[in-house]
C-alpha cells in the first residue's frame, strides 16, 4: 500500500478542546481543563495512521473530535475536503457513511439487549441504507457463523464480540475505520486473530485506518505512521519505524523503555 497517496482524507488543524469541571463554588465557575492543545494532523487516503498515548494524553478526546462525536473549542477538521466542525448531527451523514468506529471494550460497546442482527444492521438502519443480506455477508467476512445473528452479545467470547463490532463498523462500506484500542481488552491468544482480521479487511476493502493504542509495539505492527501524544499535545510524529528506531522526544523514549518485552529476557 502506498502511503500518502493523493489528497489527504482527514485534515485537522489547531484542535483545542477545553472542558469545564463542575463548579464547586457559588461565585467562581468550574476550573477549565485543556484536554487537547493545538493539535494538527493529516491522514492520507489508504494510510494506516497510529495514535499512541497513555491515559490523560488526550487521545480519546482527539478521537471523539475526529469522529464528530464532540466539538472542538477551536480549530477545524476537514473530512474528504469538507468541514465537519460545528455541523449539526443531521448534516454529518457523509461522515457517518464514510467513517466508522470500533471501540475498545466490545462488551460495553454492544447494547446488551439487542440481537447481533440488529447491532450489525444498526448503521444501515440509522442511515436509511438497505439491509438486505448484508448482515450475513458481514458476519461471514469477520469469520462468524450466520447463526450468530440471532444471538445476544453476552453469548459470545471477547474476541467474537470484537468481530461483531468490526462487522457493524463495516456495514455502511466506510472509507475510514477508526479503531480505539481494539485489542487491549482481549486475551493474548485472540489478539493476533483480531489484528490479522483488521489487516486483511483494510487490505481487501482499501480502507484508511486510524488506530489508537497505548502500546507502541502494536501500532508498529499495524501502522505506517504514528503520532505520539502526551498531555494534550502531539509530541512526535513520523513513520513508525523511524520513531521506533530513533525516538526524538524524551516522552517517546520513556514510553519505549517502559514497555515490558520478552525479547530482553530470552
Amino acid at each position: 500500500m502506498p502511503s500518502h497517496a493523493g489528497t489527504p482524507l482527514i485534515e485537522a488543524r489547531g484542535l483545542t478542546r477545553v472542558y469545564h469541571r463542575p463548579r464547586s463554588s457559588l461565585t467562581k465557575p468550574g476550573a477549565a481543563v485543556e484536554a487537547l492543545r493545538e493539535v494538527s494532523l493529516t491522514v492520507g487516503r489508504g494510510e494506516r495512521y497510529g495514535i499512541v498515548g497513555e491515559s490523560g494524553s488526550g487521545k480519546s478526546t482527539l478521537l471523539r473530535l475526529l469522529c464528530g462525536l464532540d466539538r472542538p473549542t477551536s480549530g477545524s477538521i476537514r473530512f474528504d475536503g469538507r468541514e465537519i466542525t460545528g455541523l449539526p448531527e443531521r448534516r454529518l451523514r457523509f461522515l457517518r457513511e464514510n467513517l466508522q468506529i470500533v471501540f475498545q471494550d466490545p462488551m460495553s460497546s454492544l447494547d446488551p439487549r439487542m440481537r447481533v442482527r440488529d447491532l450489525v444492521a444498526e448503521p444501515l438502519v440509522a442511515l436509511g441504507l438497505p439491509v438486505g443480506g448484508r448482515v450475513a455477508e458481514l458476519l461471514e467476512a469477520v469469520g462468524l457463523p450466520a447463526e450468530a445473528a440471532e444471538r445476544y452479545p453476552h453469548q459470545f467470547s471477547g474476541g467474537q464480540r470484537q468481530r461483531i463490532a468490526i462487522a457493524r463498523a463495516l456495514a455502511p462500506r466506510p472509507k475510514v475505520l477508526v479503531a480505539d484500542e481494539p485489542v487491549s481488552a482481549l486475551d493474548v491468544s485472540v489478539r493476533g486473530q483480531i489484528l490479522n482480521l483488521l489487516a486483511d479487511l483494510v487490505d481487501e476493502l482499501g480502507l484508511t485506518l486510524v488506530f489508537v493504542s497505548h502500546d507502541l509495539s502494536v501500532v508498529r505492527h499495524v501502522c505506517e505512521t504514528v503520532a505520539v501524544m502526551s498531555a494534550g499535545e502531539i509530541v512526535e510524529t513520523g513513520p513508525v519505524d523511524d520513531v521506533w528506531a530513533a525516538p526524538a522526544h524524551p516522552y517517546t523514549r520513556a514510553l519505549l523503555a517502559a514497555v515490558p518485552t520478552l525479547e530482553g529476557l530470552l
Binding site: S157, V190, A199, L262, E263
Partner: peptide, 22 residues
C-alpha cells in the same frame, strides 16, 4: 502458542495465532 502470539511480528506479516477462543 501463547508465547508465539505474544510476539508482534513486523508490519505486513501475519501474527501467529491460537485457533478458536477460550
Amino acid at each position: 502458542g501463547l508465547l508465539a502470539a505474544s510476539k508482534l511480528t513486523p508490519r505486513g506479516t501475519r501474527l501467529p495465532t491460537i485457533s478458536g477462543s477460550v
